[in-house]
């Protein structure tokens, strides 16, 4: 009997030792991803159905207000011009508000420690947040695309551009949401971020109108809006129409994604506003 007992003891001792991970803590990463995604979908009334309905209403109003006028923008029927913007906005808004509100919620409830004490390095936490934001953005974009389907021609003109601008644009807004969530300490600040940053930057990004209708100063100003490039790129992917220089837009978005990702990684690592 003795050898068997010894074997068990050795096994028990071994399992008490430090848990070993490979280069990436895949279980932790997948768990955090699943948790964030589940939280995003739980809030489906305010996060998924509500925004899709608002997008449907905006489309309907534009159609009804234009009447029989055959309003056009940038050479496309107005509905076809607006639909890609609404789809990108649906994804970006979800990614931004989700990441931002959960960080604030965790901070205020004092449960941020749950994520911080887990054996997850900053890079894995950033990746899990980013992946959850992009997945939720994809779900919201699909919902908006589905309700807009009867009103606009939604084809796929350039699959590569579509994929790139969607992923990069949503990622950029997820990162901005994380940054806002780390910064904000009260719900008022969250409301301010939505009302004074996300909504104005999104609505004034040539989502509803072609930049042709703008005065030169407006055109100059809008060129500083990163969301403008994401929406224009997605519109190119769906309809083949682009107003901006796509290479420039793609590079700008890539640069901001890299910069923001790097910044958030550092902030997570040094524990800015999350570790005291």
């Amino acid at each position: 009997m003795a050898p068997v007992r010894q074997g068990l003891q050795a096994q028990a001792l071994k399992s008490l030792g430090p848990r070993r991970f490979g280069r990436v803590n895949a279980i932790g990463l997948a768990t955090l991803y699943r948790r964030e995604l589940w939280r995003l979908q739980k809030d489906y009334i305010d996060g998924l159905l509500g925004p899709a309905l608002v997008n449907l209403l905006l489309m309907l109003i534009l159609k009804l207000a234009a009447g029989g006028q055959n309003a056009r923008a940038g050479g496309l029927p107005l509905a076809d011009f607006v639909a890609p913007g609404l789809i990108m906005f649906a994804a970006g808004e979800r990614a931004f508000s989700g990441a931002c509100s959960f960080l604030i919620f965790d901070k205020l409830e004092g449960i941020l420690a749950g994520g911080l004490t887990a054996p997850l390095p900053a890079s894995e936490r950033v990746s899990a947040f980013a992946a959850a934001g992009v997945t939720a953005g994809l779900i919201s974009a699909a919902a908006t695309a589905a309700v807009l389907w009867p009103f606009a021609h939604l084809g796929i003109a350039h699959p590569t551009a579509l994929t790139y601008f969607f992923l990069a644009g949503t990622l950029m807004l997820t990162f901005l949401g994380i940054l806002g969530g780390l910064w904000a300490e009260r719900w008022e600040q969250y409301a301010a971020l939505l009302a004074y940053f996300l909504i104005p930057f999104s609505y004034l990004s040539a989502m509803f109108f072609s930049t042709e209708t703008l005065p030169p100063f407006g055109r100059w100003l809008i060129a500083f809006n990163p969301i403008y490039y994401a929406i224009d790129g997605l519109r190119f992917g769906l309809t083949g129409l682009a107003e901006t220089n796509l290479r420039l837009g793609a590079l700008l978005i890539l640069a901001s994604v890299l910069l923001l990702g790097n910044l958030i990684h550092r902030l997570f690592r040094c524990g800015w506003r999350s570790k005291s």
Binding site: A65, Q69, A71, R72, L78, V82, L204, M207
Partner: peptide, 15 residues
């Protein structure tokens, strides 16, 4: 203000 701007820019010319 945002709605005023975007709707006038989107439809102001055709209406």
């Amino acid at each position: 203000l945002l709605y005023l701007v975007i709707f006038s820019l989107a439809l102001g010319r055709s209406l």
